[in-house]
Design a protein around this nucleic acid. Structure first.
Length: 559
RNA sequence: UGACCCAUGGUGUAAUUGGCAACACGUCGGAUUUUGGUUCCGCAGAGUCCUGGUUCGAGCCCAGGUGGGUCAACCA
C-alpha cells in the first residue's frame, strides 16, 4: 500500500556511500571515536559515538576507540574506565581495538624528525607570548620567526635535547614550516611539539616532549587506517593542516578524510565540560552522575535508556547547521521507549487517605492488574485492596472545576483494577487542610466482573494503606530555566539555575511489589510518569528518581 | 582590514540532485481508552534570508548583499 519511503541519509553517510561505490581506500570503511580522557562523556559525545560506530556497523566497517591522550597534565586514567563503560552502555563495541594516541609517540617523534630533515619543521627558541604576537591576527598576516631558517642539524640536535629534558617547559617548541601569511591561522607555522615534564598516565617519564593535537590526530588516523575521520564543526579550519600533514606522511593512495558535522546543543542545557565541572565542584549538583546532568552517567541514573538516546540522536540528524535541539524531543524519545518496556505500578506521591466506610473492616482482597497494556507478555500481578487506601491529593477537590474527572463530594470514580467508589464526605484539620475522604463502594463493580461495565469519567491509582510501602521520590526538572543558559553574554549561567530542579518527597506510598526492585529498574508510576530506582535505594529505604512525567493534558488545560 | 562554514514551518531535518516543498517533535481539534498515558484521525503553520541572473522551469546553479558561526591555547 504505502509508498516505500527510503529513510534520508545524512551528508556524511552519502559521502560514505559514494566512497564505497567509487572504491576509495579499497572500499573500506573505518572510523574512530577519539575522546580525551579528561572528563565524563555527555550526550553530545553520544551523538559522535552513534555516528562513528553506527556508520562502521551499517557499512561493514570497523570503529576504533582511541584515547586522545597527548597532554599528560590534563588527562587521567580515572576517566578511561568511565568512558569505556558509557560507550558499552550505549550499545557499541570496539572489540580489541582500544588504542591511545600515546601508542604512537615513537612514530610521531620519528615523523617530526623526518620533517625537520626535510626542512619542513624547526625549533623556535622564543617564548609563548612572542610566538603568539608574531602569529598576526585573523585579518593580518603573521611574521616569520628569526629561528625559522636555522640549520637542520641545529634543529635536530635541539629537538633531541628537548626530549632529554635539558630545557625548561616553555623554552622551546617544534614548529611546522608552512606559511606565516596564510589566511588560515592554523597554517601559520603551527606548534607541533612542546616540552612537558609531567608524567604521562601510560608512558610515564619516557617523553619530555609531547605532540599537539594537530600533530597527533591525523597521523593516528593514518596509522590506524582510518578512512573517515568525523569530528565537529570547530575543526573545520584545522582540515587544511590535517591534509598537509597527511600529505607529508602518505606513501600510496590511501588517505583518511576529515569530515565535520554540527555539535549537539540542547535547550535548557549546558554542554561545556568546563562549566559542568564547575557545577560539580561548586556542589550545584551532587556529582557527575547527578540525574540533572547531561552526562551519560547522569542520564543513566535519571532512568534514560540507551535505546532512547540512540533514537534521539537518530531523530536530530547530522548537518553543518549550528542548531539548538529542543529537549522535548529527547523526552519524547524516552517516553516512547519506556512506554513499551516499563512495567506499570501504583505509587502515590502525595498521599491522601480514603476510607471506604461500607467495606468490611479487616478485610483484604487481591486485585489483578495488567503489568503493561502495550505488551501482554509482561503478564499480570496482584495487589492488595482494603478498606483504607491512599490516593493522590491532586485527585480530590472540594469545589471541582468543570471537567474535573476525579473525586469530589458526591462524585464517582473507579479505583483502577478494583471498585467504583462515591465520595460521601471528608474531614479537615484545624488549619483547613483536607485529611480524610469518606467513600462508599459498589461491590458489584469489581474489575473483571459483570457489574464492572458501568462507565465512570475518572479512574484513579491508589495504594492500600495497611500494605503500602514508604518511599522517597526525587522529582527532577530541568537544571536551568533559560533555554540557552550558557549563551547569555551579560549573565552568568549560574543565575539561570532552576531552584525547583529537584524536589524530594519523603513520604510517598508505593505498592508492596516494589520492595524487591533494584537500582536502575524502570517503572511507570501509573498516571504520573516514568521512574527508576536510584543507587541510594535499599529494601528498607526505597528511593526513586523521576525520569520524565507522563504527558498531562489536564495540567495543560488547567494552567 | 582576512579566510572558511552555514541559512527551508515554532524546533530539528527531507526534497529522487533543476520538476507540485515532505517528515518528526511541538501546538490545536476529535475518536478510542479502567492511565486526562498509549493508539488512531484531522487542522493549522514555511513558499525556502534579500536582490538580481541563467533556464520552459530554481529551495537546489551563478553573482552580489544581509545575518549567524568558527579561527589569533606550548588545550582537544
Amino acid at each position: 500500500m504505502a509508498e516505500e519511503v527510503k529513510p534520508p541519509v545524512s551528508f556524511i553517510e552519502q559521502i560514505i556511500i559514494d566512497d564505497i561505490e567509487a572504491g576509495k581506500n579499497g572500499g573500506r570503511i573505518h572510523t574512530r571515536f577519539p575522546p580525551e580522557p579528561n572528563g565524563y562523556l555527555h550526550i553530545g559525545h553520544a551523538k559522535a559515538i552513534c555516528l562513528d560506530f553506527g556508520m562502521a556497523q551499517k557499512y561493514g566497517g570497523k570503529c576504533n576507540l582511541r584515547f586522545d591522550d597527548t597532554n599528560p597534565v590534563k588527562e587521567d586514567v580515572e576517566y578511561i574506565d568511565s568512558i569505556k563503560e558509557d560507550i558499552k552502555w550505549l550499545g557499541f563495541d570496539w572489540e580489541d581495538r582500544e588504542y591511545y594516541a600515546s601508542d604512537y609517540f615513537g612514530k610521531l617523534y620519528d615523523f617530526a624528525v623526518d620533517l625537520i630533515k626535510r626542512g619542513l619543521a624547526y625549533i623556535d627558541d622564543q617564548p609563548a607570548d612572542i610566538i603568539s604576537s608574531q602569529k598576526g591576527t585573523p585579518s593580518q598576516p603573521g611574521i616569520e620567526s628569526p629561528y625559522r631558517n636555522r640549520s637542520v642539524s641545529e634543529s635536530l640536535s635541539l629537538f633531541e635535547r628537548m626530549n632529554k629534558g635539558e630545557f625548561d617547559e616553555g623554552s622551546r617548541v617544534l614548529r611546522a614550516k608552512i606559511d606565516m601569511t596564510s589566511p588560515n591561522m592554523q597554517m601559520r607555522d603551527p606548534i607541533i611539539y612542546r616540552i612537558i615534564k609531567s608524567a604521562h598516565h601510560r608512558t610515564g617519564e619516557i617523553w619530555k616532549v609531547y605532540p599537539m593535537y594537530d600533530f597527533a590526530h591525523g597521523q593516528s588516523d593514518y596509522f590506524e587506517g582510518i578512512t573517515h575521520s568525523l569530528c565537529t564543526l570547530e575543526f573545520e579550519v584545522h582540515r587544511p593542516l590535517y591534509d598537509w600533514l597527511v600529505d607529508q606522511l602518505k606513501t600510496n593512495d590511501y588517505r583518511p578524510r576529515q569530515i565535520e558535522f554540527n555539535r549537539l546543543n540542547l535547550t535548557y542545557t549546558m554542554m561545556s565540560k568546563r562549566k559542568l565541572l564547575e557545577l560539580v565542584q561548586e556542589s550545584k549538583v551532587s556529582g557527575w552522575d547527578d540525574p540533572r546532568m547531561p552526562t551519560l552517567c547522569g542520564l543513566r541514573r535519571r532512568g534514560y535508556t540507551p535505546g532512547s538516546i540512540r533514537k534521539f540522536v537518530d531523530l536530530i540528524g547530522y548537518t553543518k547547521v549550528e542548531a539548538i535541539n529542543d529537549v522535548s524531543l529527547l523526552e519524547h524519545a524516552v517516553r516512547e521507549d519506556l512506554n513499551i518496556c516499563a512495567p506499570r505500578v501504583f505509587a502515590v506521591l502525595n498521599p491522601l487517605k480514603v476510607i471506604i466506610t461500607n467495606y468490611p473492616e479487616g478485610k483484604t482482597e487481591n486485585v489483578e492488574l495488567i503489568n503493561n497494556p502495550e505488551d501482554e507478555s509482561m503478564g499480570k500481578r496482584e495487589i492488595p485492596f482494603s478498606r483504607e487506601v491512599f490516593i493522590e491529593q491532586d485527585d480530590f477537590m472540594e469545589n471541582p472545576p468543570h471537567k474535573f474527572f476525579r473525586l469530589a463530594p458526591g462524585m464517582e470514580v473507579r479505583l483502577k483494577g478494583a471498585y467504583i467508589v462515591k465520595c460521601t464526605g471528608y474531614k479537615k484539620d484545624e488549619s483547613g487542610d483536607i485529611i480524610e475522604i469518606y467513600c462508599n463502594y459498589d461491590p458489584t463493580t469489581k474489575s473483571g466482573e459483570s457489574g464492572s461495565e458501568r462507565k465512570v469519567k475518572g479512574t484513579l491509582h491508589w495504594v492500600s494503606a495497611p500494605h503500602a510501602v514508604d518511599a522517597e521520590v526525587r522529582l527532577y526538572d530541568r537544571l536551568f530555566n533559560h533555554d540557552d543558559p550558557a549563551g547569555q553574554k551579560d549573565d552568568d549561567y549560574r543565575s539561570f539555575l532552576n531552584p525547583g530542579s529537584l524536589k524530594i518527597l519523603k513520604h510517598c506510598k508505593v505498592e508492596p511489589s516494589l520492595v524487591s526492585a533494584s537500582p536502575l529498574d524502570k517503572f511507570q508510576f501509573q498516571r504520573l510518569g516514568y521512574f527508576c530506582v536510584d543507587y541510594d535505594s535499599t529494601k528498607e529505604h526505597l528511593v526513586f528518581n523521576r525520569t520524565v512525567s507522563l504527558k498531562d493534558t489536564w495540567a495543560k488545560i488547567h494552567k
